[in-house]
């Protein structure tokens, strides 16, 4: 049986981690490599690096970061943000990332998922979905551009489309819960998990260790991603994992 995965997420801008972990024993909390090692030692099962650079130069720097992280880290990691073409995917995966995460670019042109999956295998292609409840749809609506732009896609229709195109995993962020720290979006996560045959990483809303238990059991998530709760030491990866183990979940 596969374990439930705990996935810290690091925002990287121009090659530096922003919102760094507040730990005194880190030489440089802004260094993606240092942070990666720190979370690996904590027992993180995987890492996500989200490139939030606005500039072209920043994106170039990300390739160097990926190479360095790949040379140091002995756990899998995903890189997202600013990946718009097959060429972008090649650059990041060849630099040593295990997976790339597509978001806006996949909505703009779903065939991009297929191109990546054909070239590297589905296991390398994560599709990130930002979703928000919509009364008019009576379901969740898919958003792009970091949640700024609404699309015509209803969540289940979109997840079926990306699975058809060869996506290997879904990184599902609930915009209703994100940053609220009141727990993951259980209903959304469960709906998506039950609709697709690929793993779902729940994201957004983690505020305490119990939230992880809920999203794995009720929400049926395969993995859970969190950023600030770990960065700001509200809990630690190790603490969350030992709690989940105690509760009887399969955890590494």
């Amino acid at each position: 049986m596969l374990t439930k995965r705990i996935v810290p997420c690091l925002d990287v801008k121009e090659g530096r981690v922003v919102k760094g972990v507040q730990f005194v024993n880190l030489r440089d909390a802004g260094d993606p490599v240092e942070m990666g090692i720190f979370y690996d030692e904590q027992g993180a099962d995987e890492l996500v690096f989200l490139d939030i650079s606005a500039s072209h130069e920043g994106r170039e720097t990300m390739v160097d970061v990926v190479e360095e992280v790949a040379g140091t880290l002995a756990i899998p990691f995903t890189v997202g943000g600013g990946i718009n073409t097959l060429e972008d995917m090649k650059r990041i995966l060849r630099a040593g990332a295990d997976k790339v995460s597509l978001n806006t670019a996949a909505v703009n042109r779903p065939e991009l998922i297929r191109e990546g999956a054909d070239f590297f295998g589905s296991q390398c292609i994560v599709v990130a979905i930002d979703a928000k409840w919509d009364d008019e749809l009576n379901s969740w609506r898919v958003y792009t551009h970091g949640g700024r732009n609404a699309t015509d896609w209803e969540i289940i229709a979109w997840t079926k489309e990306i699975v058809k195109q060869g996506a290997g995993e879904i990184l599902l962020t609930s915009m209703d819960e994100d940053g609220e720290k009141k727990g993951f979006a259980i209903s959304l996560t469960k709906t998506v998990s039950e609709a697709v045959s690929i793993p779902v990483i729940a994201s957004g809303g983690a505020g305490k260790k119990e939230d992880f238990y809920d999203v794995f059991t009720e929400g049926k998530a395969d993995a859970a991603l969190a950023a600030s709760i770990f960065h700001y030491k509200e809990t630690s990866v190790a603490e969350v994992k030992s709690y989940l183990k105690e509760k009887g979940l399969e955890i590494r």
Binding site: R5, D45, Q123, G168, E169, S197, P199, D222, E250
Partner: peptide
């Protein structure tokens, strides 16, 4: 169960 077998297993 999901294929590929992807993730951490005991």
């Amino acid at each position: 169960y999901k294929v590929p077998h992807m993730g951490w297993n005991r």
